Amino acid sequence: MQLQEKSFWLFNLLHVIVATSAREPSSPICSKYDYEERLLERVIRNELALETTLKEILKTNANVVDALKQ
């Protein structure tokens, strides 16, 4: 239970870090579509990174639970 709580807080911390770093820097005026394309690419990269992190956390959690059962 304690490991799940730590994993939950770690995931939330990563989410906050990604959310704060996802802000677009000020840039020269460009077309609406260029901005949307770059924003969509960044959102997809962040989503994939979070999915990978979550999978690693769940795998580690399963390993710890298995180790504790033995």
Rank of each mutant, 00 (worst) to 15 (best):
57 I>F: 02
64 V>E: 11
24 E>A: 02
60 T>H: 15
41 E>W: 05
15 H>L: 15
34 D>G: 01
22 A>R: 00
3 L>T: 07
19 A>W: 07
23 R>W: 00
23 R>I: 12
8 F>D: 02
60 T>R: 15
16 V>H: 10
44 I>E: 14
28 P>V: 04
58 L>K: 04
66 D>Y: 08
61 N>D: 04
26 S>A: 04
9 W>K: 14
62 A>V: 03
27 S>A: 13
29 I>C: 04
70 Q>G: 14
25 P>K: 06
39 L>P: 00
60 T>D: 15
4 Q>A: 09
31 S>N: 08
50 L>Q: 06
7 S>C: 03
39 L>C: 00
43 V>C: 09
38 R>K: 11
30 C>F: 02
11 F>G: 01
12 N>H: 11
6 K>P: 00
33 Y>R: 14
14 L>D: 05
8 F>P: 00
13 L>Q: 11
45 R>N: 07
40 L>H: 05
22 A>G: 01
52 T>D: 10
70 Q>A: 15
4 Q>D: 07
2 Q>H: 13
26 S>E: 10
5 E>W: 04
64 V>L: 14
26 S>D: 10
39 L>T: 09
69 K>L: 13
36 E>L: 03
34 D>W: 03
18 V>D: 12
37 E>L: 06
34 D>K: 01
53 T>A: 14
9 W>S: 07
9 W>H: 12
18 V>R: 03
19 A>F: 13
7 S>Y: 07
50 L>E: 02
40 L>P: 00
34 D>L: 02
49 A>V: 08
54 L>C: 08
33 Y>W: 09
38 R>S: 00
33 Y>P: 10
10 L>C: 08
21 S>K: 13
16 V>C: 03
15 H>Q: 15
60 T>V: 02
49 A>S: 08
48 L>W: 05
44 I>G: 00
56 E>D: 07
4 Q>P: 06
38 R>W: 03
